[in-house]
Structure formats: C-alpha cells, structure tokens
C-alpha cells in the first residue's frame, strides 16, 4: 500500500507537473475574480474566503478524471483489480495520493492568495484550516465520479458535472465555518465539525462507490 502511495506521488510529480497545474489553475481563478468584481479591497476581503473555496473546489476537480483512466489505459487497473487487497483500500490509497499531490498544494497556496484578497489573519487561518479538512472530501467523492466515468473517452467534463452537486455540502460548511470564524456571533465549531464529519463520510462512500464502479466497468 505504501508502495502504491509512493508510486502515485512520484507519477504526479513527473507526469507534466500535474500538481503544479492545479495550483496554477487555482491562482488564475482567484486572480481573475478582482477583475470581475472590481478592486474594492473591502469587498474582496468580504468575499475572499468564498472565492478561495470555489477556486479550490474547481481546482480539485481538475485531473480527477485521470485518477483511474490512466491506470485503465496502460492495463494497470487489471492488476489492481485482481489482487487480494480489497479494492476499496486500493482506491482509498489512490485518493490519498491524489489529494497529497493536488489538494495539499492548494491548501498550502491558499494563505498567499488570501493576502491578495486582503483577508485578515483569522480569515486566512480559518480558510486554510477548512480547506485542509474539506478538500479531501472533494477528492473522495470525486473518486466515485471518476470510477463511474472511467470507461468514457471524454469523461473529464462529465466527472465535474456529476461531482459538483454532490460537493455542495462541503462548500457550504467550509465557507460557513470561515465566516463563523470572522463574524463574532456565529460559533466556528459546529460547521467545522460537520465539515470533518462530511470528510469522514465521503472517505467511506467515495471509495466504496468507486470500487464498485471499477469492478463493473472491467471487461
């Protein structure tokens, strides 16, 4: 399992800088927003956490469709399916590797982008923390979409369409937690804990669904 994790990490480092592209996309999306809403710093500070979250959500979906498709194309998926190791575990590890390679860089980049958005320290900290907890959930639920669309030649767009509605709760609680941290009356912990719960929940159903889809898709 560690071998699989190490291999997937190595692959994402080498295969055309996959991790960097995600961060680049994230930065570009966030950088474009001020051009749309205007350079009003107060406004940017107010919508900053939401922008960062939406940017991270879109960036996490990027490259998710290749999660299993690449394995299928070179025949590795066959071997992964055959082993005694439960497929759910294999999928889980692949998700973990994918998150480490693409999700974690987003989290690390978010404080910097928070500065661009004129957010204060608390907001930046809260955004980074919620992204740290929330982005794995997106990867896990996205894996289900990737497993379902694995056999499709142009699955990329479809994966995003299928996954985005399911990811709405993550977005809602991620952003609510950040705003709760900034605005005094609302408590930070409840939405944050729900976000954690969502993460754990998706960590189960995502791999289970993806494993089932992969089994059914092999032919």
């Amino acid at each position: 399992m560690i071998a699989l994790l190490a291999r997937d990490l190595k692959l994402s480092m080498r295969a055309g800088g996959g991790a960097l592209i995600g961060v680049l996309f994230f930065m570009t999306v966030v950088a474009v927003i001020p051009f749309g809403v205007g350079p009003d710093l107060n406004l940017l500070a107010r919508i900053g956490p939401a922008i960062l979250w939406i940017g991270a959500l879109l960036a996490s979906l990027l490259g998710l469709d290749r999660l299993f498709q690449a394995e299928r194309e070179d025949g590795s998926l066959d071997l992964l399916l055959m082993q005694e190791t439960p497929l759910v575990l294999t999928v889980f590890i692949k998700c973990l590797a994918h998150w480490l390679a693409t999700g974690l860089p987003l989290v690390i980049a978010s404080p910097l982008l928070g500065l661009f958005m004129n957010m204060d320290e608390v907001a930046i900290g809260a955004t980074t923390l919620t992204l740290l907890v929330g982005t794995p959930a997106i990867t896990f639920i996205g894996a289900a979409g990737a497993g379902i669309a694995v056999a499709l030649p142009r699955g990329g767009l479809l994966v995003s369409i299928l996954v985005l509605p399911l990811a709405i709760p993550v977005l809602i609680f991620g952003v609510s937690a950040v705003y709760a941290a900034i605005q005094d009356p609302a408590p930070f912990l409840p939405p944050f804990l729900i976000l954690v719960a969502l993460n754990l929940f998706f960590a189960v159903i995502g791999p289970v669904a993806a494993a089932a889809a992969l089994r059914l898709s092999s032919d």
Binding site: R14, E73, D74, G75, D78, L79, M82
Partner: peptide, 15 residues
C-alpha cells in the same frame, strides 16, 4: 494466485 499479462504492459512510461 495468478499473474495476468495482457496486451497492455501495465507499466508507467514516466517511471
């Protein structure tokens, strides 16, 4: 208990 060697090599080009 089996190895399967299919048409595709199941090896990563980048590694």
């Amino acid at each position: 208990a089996a190895h399967y060697l299919g048409h595709r090599n199941a090896m990563k080009r980048e590694l």
